[in-house]
Amino acid sequence: MSIDPSFSLRSATVSRLRAAGCVFAEDEAELLFTTAHDSDELDTMVARRAGGLPIEHVVGWAAFAGLRVAVDPGVFVPRRRTEFLVGRAVSLAGPGALCVDLCCGSGAAGAVLLSAVPGAEVYASDIEPPAVRCARRNIEPRGGRVFEGDLFAPLPDRLRGRVQVLVANVPYVPTDDIGLLPPEAREHEPRVALDGGSDGLDVLRRVAAEAADWLAPGGHLLVETSEQQAARAVETVTGHGLTCRVTGSEELYATVVVATRP
Rank of each mutant, 00 (worst) to 15 (best):
L204V: 03
L113H: 09
G60A: 12
D43W: 04
I3H: 14
R18G: 15
D27L: 15
H188K: 11
R136Q: 15
D195C: 11
G197I: 05
H240K: 01
L53Y: 06
R88K: 15
V71L: 05
L85T: 00
E140A: 08
G60C: 12
Q228Y: 14
L204I: 06
T255G: 01
H57Y: 14
R133D: 14
A93N: 03
T238D: 09
V117E: 07
F33N: 04
G239I: 04
S15V: 07
E140G: 06
L180C: 08
G107L: 09
H188N: 14
V132N: 04
D176I: 13
M45H: 05
C134G: 05
H240L: 03
W61K: 10
E227M: 05
R81S: 15
P118A: 08
D72L: 11
V117S: 06
D101M: 02
L242R: 03
R80I: 13
V46P: 08
P130C: 00
G60H: 08
L85H: 00
F24Q: 13
E189T: 10
G105Y: 04
S2H: 15
G241L: 01
A19Q: 13
V234E: 00
R232H: 05
E224Y: 12
P5T: 12
A62P: 06
T255W: 02
L9V: 11
L155M: 07
L67W: 09
V223N: 08
D157E: 14
S15Q: 14
L155W: 03
Y123L: 09
E121D: 14
G60D: 08
G200E: 11
G200V: 14
V207G: 02
H37A: 11
V100H: 00
V14A: 12
S2V: 12
A211R: 00
P54V: 11
R245P: 05
L32W: 04
I127Q: 06
T236L: 10
F147L: 10
A108S: 10
A254P: 07
V23F: 10
L201R: 05
R16P: 04
A168Y: 00
L180V: 04
P174G: 11
A20W: 03
L204R: 02
E30H: 13
L67E: 15
R158F: 13
A230K: 03
D126V: 13
R79I: 06
A20Y: 06
C99M: 08
D4Q: 14
G161Q: 03
R142Y: 05
V14G: 08
R79S: 12
A19N: 12
P174A: 10
P171D: 13
L102Y: 00
Y253M: 10
V77K: 05
P73D: 07
P54W: 09
T44L: 15
P174Q: 10
G248A: 14
A259M: 10
A211V: 03
A209W: 00
H188D: 11
L32E: 02
F7M: 09
A111C: 11
A135Y: 08
P190T: 15
D43I: 06
V257S: 02
S39P: 04
A89Y: 03
S249Q: 15
L204K: 01
E56W: 07
Y253I: 10
G96S: 02
A89F: 08
D202Y: 05
A209K: 00
A19V: 02
P182M: 02
G66A: 13
I127N: 02
S39T: 14
L194S: 10
A168L: 02
T225K: 00
R49K: 08
F7Q: 13
G197E: 02
F33W: 04
A50G: 05
A47M: 11
